[in-house]
Amino acid sequence: EVTLVMVPRDEASLQKGLDLANRYPTLLLSYKIGARGEVSLHGWAGSEWVNVTPEKYKTGEFFRNGPNSALLIEEPGMPIPESLVPPVDWVESVYKISTTDTRPLLHLIGQYYDFDYKDWKWFANRYGMDMASINPEGLNIAWYH
């Protein structure tokens, strides 16, 4: 199960994207919208970011193993341009999270990936959060109930 994860190009969002890419099969992309609405896309190649042109993105020419679904993350009030929603011919399911605020973002990402106990714990520690604040439902925590 490969997930395309698209994050805004800011330090905090890149870090979360890289953390996910280190734990799950991930096609990680970062985007930046310029002042005139122009889109810059970078793909994580495992050790460096490489430019991905809009043409290559549209045709899905930039990866070897296609994603099964996509998770797009956007800043509140800064919607991801339609051109960055991956076309249906190379990814079927597409989901969007419209916040970059750490707590709700980790909560929703954890639900999407169905984090196990050690993932919830790892991300909570990593970002200095209580596990219960990012996993209020107590998902995959046996002792919670």
Binding site: Y95, K96, L105
Partner: peptide, 13 residues
């Protein structure tokens, strides 16, 4: 408010 306010299904098969 629930965090689900930030969650959107853009497309499912």
């Amino acid at each position: 408010a629930s965090d689900l306010q930030y969650w959107f299904v853009v497309r499912i098969p």
